[in-house]
Simulated scan of single mutants.
Amino acid sequence: MKAITYFLGTLILLGGVIYGLMMLGVPTAVLIVVSLIIAGLGIMGAAKAAGSSKKITQTSADSSGNTSTTETKVENDAI
């Protein structure tokens, strides 16, 4: 779900920046380069968000009162 949010945010940012640059009269070649850079940053951000992982800590106690802690790393590959 985070990847979709990054993608939509990137599209909104891209549209705003391109519109602003067009209003300033910036050449088309510069618009294309800026578009590619912003799109690339958006894709990298979405990939990072989609491939994040979480640590889960579980603490348990046995009958004698001794406690043990277990950490598990869970990969989140779902988009």
Rank of each mutant, 00 (worst) to 15 (best):
M1E: 10
M1H: 07
A3S: 12
A3G: 11
T5Y: 01
T5R: 02
T5G: 12
F7H: 11
G9P: 07
G9I: 00
T10Y: 01
L11Y: 09
L11N: 06
I12Q: 07
L14K: 00
L14P: 07
G15T: 13
G15N: 09
V17T: 05
V17W: 10
I18W: 03
Y19V: 15
Y19S: 15
Y19H: 14
G20C: 13
G20H: 13
L21Q: 08
L21H: 04
M23N: 15
M23K: 14
L24M: 15
L24Y: 15
G25V: 09
P27Q: 11
P27V: 10
T28Y: 11
T28C: 00
A29S: 06
A29I: 10
A29G: 03
V30R: 15
V30M: 12
L31M: 14
I32R: 02
V33H: 04
V34H: 00
V34C: 07
V34W: 00
S35Q: 01
L36Q: 02
L36T: 08
I37A: 10
I37D: 10
I37E: 08
I38N: 04
I38C: 05
A39I: 14
L41Q: 06
G42I: 10
M44A: 15
M44Y: 12
A46S: 11
A46C: 11
K48G: 03
A49S: 04
A50W: 02
T57G: 00
T57E: 04
T57K: 04
Q58E: 13
T59K: 07
S60C: 02
A61L: 08
A61S: 08
D62T: 04
D62W: 07
S64F: 14
N66Q: 09
T67Q: 03
S68C: 00
T70L: 13
E71G: 05
K73T: 13
V74M: 10
V74R: 05
E75D: 06
E75H: 08
N76G: 06
N76F: 10
N76Y: 06
A78V: 13
A78W: 08
A78T: 06
I79S: 02
I79P: 03
